[in-house]
């Protein structure tokens, strides 16, 4: 997993609430399991028309946002199916940060398994961010989003922050400590079965 420290680009404002994982990656692509290459399916039904031509009125198709790595979206982003493909697609497309007032639980968790940074900011701040046309900087180390109008700090679980900064996914990280875990377990009173 790649580590994440800082990113500075313009934002892509997607002012929609309850964007579910089927909008992020439609079901017909779920059969594919390679983690790469899902970017072309991202927001498939919004990006392409029936003939698979790009729709000019969808924001991702505006060349202005081509190099944006920061997606700003409405409440409850990533609701619906638990498909991890949603995170793969956002990343493969080029996003490394998603900012929203709230995320669906499984999606939020899936982000950290793959090195995508979800940032929760309050409604008003997100509303303001939509208007931001210049570059903004997301600095994970200092937990700050720097915009033209000032700095906004954000909260993130320390362990999750470490995972992203060091580029360790949790399985790899945990298994590196296998020995210590086994030693601990020998002494712990947790029943091995219920």
């Amino acid at each position: 997993m790649q580590s994440f420290k800082k990113v500075k680009t313009i934002i892509t404002p997607l002012d929609k609430v309850n964007v579910d994982t089927d909008q992020i990656v439609p079901k017909q692509f779920l059969k594919l399991v390679q983690k790469s290459g899902f970017g072309k399916f991202l927001f498939y039904n919004w990006r392409y028309d029936d003939q698979e031509h790009l729709k000019s009125d969808f924001i991702l198709n505006d060349s202005k946002y081509k190099n944006s790595k920061i997606l700003v979206v409405g409440d409850n982003f990533g609701c619906g199916s638990s498909r991890e493909h949603a995170v793969w697609a956002l990343q493969d497309y080029g996003f490394s940060v998603i900012i929203s007032p709230s995320f669906a639980d499984i999606f939020y968790s899936n982000c950290f398994k793959n090195g995508l940074l979800p940032i929760i900011l309050d409604d008003k701040t997100v509303e303001k961010l939509y208007q931001e046309t210049g570059e903004i900087e997301v600095d994970l180390e200092n937990q700050i989003v720097k915009t033209s109008s000032g700095e906004i700090s954000f909260v993130i679980d320390l362990h999750k922050k470490k995972i992203l900064l060091e580029g360790l996914d949790d399985i790899a990280q945990t298994l590196l400590y296998e020995k210590k875990i086994s030693e601990f377990e020998k002494q712990s009173k947790i029943p091995s079965v219920l």
């Binding site: 638990s82 991890e84 995170v87 499984i106 899936n110 996914d169």
Partner: peptide, 14 residues
Amino acid sequence: CGLGHTDVAYVLLN
């Protein structure tokens, strides 16, 4: 409860 693929993989191993 439901989990993503990576979490399920973790549970399968641990």
